[in-house]
């Protein structure tokens, strides 16, 4: 059982992570680099002169070490997600739910909501340079929100009665009603256009990544099961 979880998690995580890393480098990284020009003071928003919205930005792999590390860490992060997902898939399958590449799409969507969208609803994806509350406080809020959303997603998928749906709704809303840690004042030097684009791109790529991850995990889970059966 453990080798099936490990194998499908590693395969799905590495494959989805690699695709995600390339999507992020193409769609998200240029926005981040653009923001860093403001963070570092190379460009100044609301200065004396209007600033071009299209500065020359370094292309992908101009900094091979930086982008290479990003690829490795994206693959690692998504492998972590995939291990958790494959483990939960094993539990769901034991309860009689079908796990395959197709149902995996929904698993991926639930994972995106849990790990990315739920915390991001109040702690929006940040461009470098934005004002934010203390990192420790935000990490605690992030962790609690992800845990609550994860339980909520499980209840929505497998609860099957009104009470579990109500508890799920409460778990999803509570962290945002209580509120995420916020900065004392705003001091971000980055234009709002860049910040908004960054959040949108991060969520969009994140959703694509998670749907791929779920589908891959479902596929490898089923394939590994068949292989083990054939070998037995």
């Amino acid at each position: 059982m453990f080798s099936r979880i490990l194998t499908s998690g590693l395969f799905a995580g590495a494959a989805a992570g690699l695709i995600t890393a390339l999507l992020q480098l193409y769609f998200v990284q240029p926005v981040l680099l653009h923001a860093e020009l403001y963070e570092g003071g190379d460009l100044v928003h609301f200065g004396a002169d209007p600033v071009t919205a299209h500065p020359d930005l370094p292309g992908i792999f101009t900094e091979p070490m930086r982008d290479g590390l990003s690829i490795i860490f994206t693959m690692l992060t998504y492998t972590g997600y995939a291990l958790v997902m494959a483990a939960l898939m094993s539990v769901a399958e034991r309860q009689g739910h079908e796990i395959n590449a197709r149902t995996g799409l929904l698993w991926g969507l639930a994972g995106f909501i849990t790990f990315h969208f739920a915390p991001g609803l109040s702690l929006a994806p940040e461009v470098p340079g934005v004002a934010a509350a203390d990192i420790g406080a935000r990490q605690i809020w992030w962790t609690i929100t992800v845990a609550a959303a994860g339980v909520a997603m499980w209840l929505i998928a497998f609860g099957g009665n009104l009470v579990s749906y109500l508890i799920a709704a409460l778990l999803l809303m509570a962290p945002h009603i209580i509120g995420a840690p916020e900065p004392e004042s705003f001091s971000g030097p980055v234009p709002t256009e860049i910040g908004a684009l960054f959040a949108a791109r991060a969520f969009g790529v994140g959703m694509a990544a998670w749907v791929l991850l779920g589908s891959f995990a479902g596929y490898f889970w089923q394939a590994e099961g068949k292989r083990a059966e054939a070998a037995a």
């Binding site: 998200v28 981040l32 982008d67 490795i72 994206t74 992060t77 934010a132 990192i135 962790t143 991060a202």
Partner: peptide
């Protein structure tokens, strides 16, 4: 693994994972 790549603030880890943390929605700084 998620804690290491997403949350640990040791500076070597933070610098290496910086862009990923921003793009993947982890609190970074």
């Amino acid at each position: 693994i998620i804690t290491l790549t997403g949350h640990v603030q040791a500076s070597a880890l933070h610098d290496a994972a910086h862009d990923v943390r921003h793009a993947t929605g982890f609190p970074c700084h």
